[in-house]
């Protein structure tokens, strides 16, 4: 009983508290850098596309709004032939960013994505790809991976020995 009265009193006392609402759009809010807004595809420090089209983002997406097709250039580097996000379905959960092994897909603090035509919410690769590395400036997946690509032969990645000479019997 007393707790009820106390509750009523606490609520009443809020009559004189400051209001916390930010009067958007009159006042522009400052979003934290890890806010989960518009999704972008980033590039690695050398300026090449980071996405290797591993399909993990599309697999983890709970609303299945990511579709892509893998392709490979003549030197063995993988990239998405197309990469489509249907933002009219996206729930900005950030699972795709969590799943991405190459830091390619990232969520940004931009949330102002309203459109009058729903079709305009379908973003293709050219809409998603930005020219920088986003939140993770130094990372380059292919420096860690074992596959050879143009400009990086076998054994040239980080922490790799030069390729084995199969014809040698030396220990």
């Amino acid at each position: 009983m007393l707790s009820i009265l106390k509750g009523i009193w606490v609520i009443l006392s809020h009559t004189f508290r400051r209001r916390v609402t930010v009067q958007y759009p009159d006042v522009q809010p400052i979003m934290p850098p890890r806010y989960r807004g518009r999704i972008v595809l980033t590039r690695d420090p050398s300026g090449a596309e980071r996405c290797v089209a591993c399909y993990l983002c599309s697999a983890v997406c709970p609303v299945e709004c990511i579709a892509l097709q893998a392709a490979e250039d003549e030197h063995g580097r993988r990239y998405p032939e197309f990469f489509r996000i249907n933002f009219s379905r996206c729930i900005f959960c950030g699972f795709c960013e969590d799943a991405c092994p190459t830091y390619a897909i990232q969520l940004t603090p931009d949330f102002e994505m309203g459109e009058y035509v729903r079709q305009n919410l379908v973003y293709e690769k050219e809409h998603l790809l930005i020219s920088g590395p986003g939140k993770y400036p130094g990372y380059d997946f292919y420096r860690m991976a074992g596959v050879a690509i143009g400009g990086k032969d076998k054994g040239e990645a980080e922490n790799e020995e030069p390729p084995v000479d199969v014809r040698s019997l030396m220990p």
Binding site: S58, C61, V63, E64, C65, A67, R84, V122
Partner: peptide, 9 residues
């Protein structure tokens, strides 16, 4: 995956 994006184009 991709059910809501495959034909979205």
């Amino acid at each position: 995956s991709g059910r809501t994006a495959i034909d979205a184009k």
